[in-house]
Design a protein around this nucleic acid. Structure first.
Lengths: 101, 101
DNA sequence: CATATACGTAAGCCATGACTTACGGAACGA
DNA sequence: TCGTTCCGTAAGTCATGGCTTACGTATATG
């Protein structure tokens, strides 16, 4: 739910790759694992982490599980870095002007 | 330099905390370590990781090293999630309309 | 009911890395 | 030069977690 948890969840490259694949559209676990260098259970574990972080949502269709990214989570991340950028830029300008030289 | 490296670098909570402290303004290593639950060398190691990722820049003033966040890196991160948001939202809408039902 | 598909979970292995203490070097002041 | 401050690096410890294989469970199909 918090941006901290999300950023932490997106750290591992493989997990971020899964998340980016999911951004292109919903997919099943098997389909995701198809084009990846890791096993299907590994993908499953990453999806659980992404789901716990609130980054993806799960839907069931028959025996399959369809995962898709939660747009709200991406919006939260975007807003976080927006605010961060404002603060950092402001501090940067202050360090240029007043400085202490 | 790449957003992937940056996100990966921001994963560890302690390191992200250091980065957020730095967003408020430039600081020396010792000053940063002052209000943190880890040792100064630990902070130093995190700063190296942040620097390697291109998130912070280092300046020298006497015997001290002043670190500050690189605004360009934050902009890169923000842009990444901006684009990501567009793609994800688009895919989300498509999954609502056409779907495949 | 039997089989196949699609998936999550358990258990275990092993590399990564976050943290510590100890040490060495560079910049200032007396 | 001597001592102090500020810092990076080396070496070592220990938990975390990413990955694997093996297994158990729910859903269709015959």
């Amino acid at each position: 739910m918090t941006y901290g948890t999300m950023i932490e969840a997106l750290g591992p490259p493989t997990r971020r790759a899964i998340f980016e694949k999911l951004a292109a559209g919903p997919s099943s676990v098997g389909a995701l694992a198809k084009g990846m260098p890791v096993s299907r259970p590994a993908v499953s574990q990453h999806l659980k982490a992404l789901k716990d972080a609130g980054l993806v949502v799960e839907a069931r269709r028959g025996a399959a599980r369809i995962y898709s990214v939660d747009p709200k989570s991406v919006a939260a991340l975007r807003d976080y870095f927006d605010r961060f950028w404002d603060v950092a830029l402001d501090a940067y300008r202050r360090s240029l002007e007043g400085g202490d030289a």
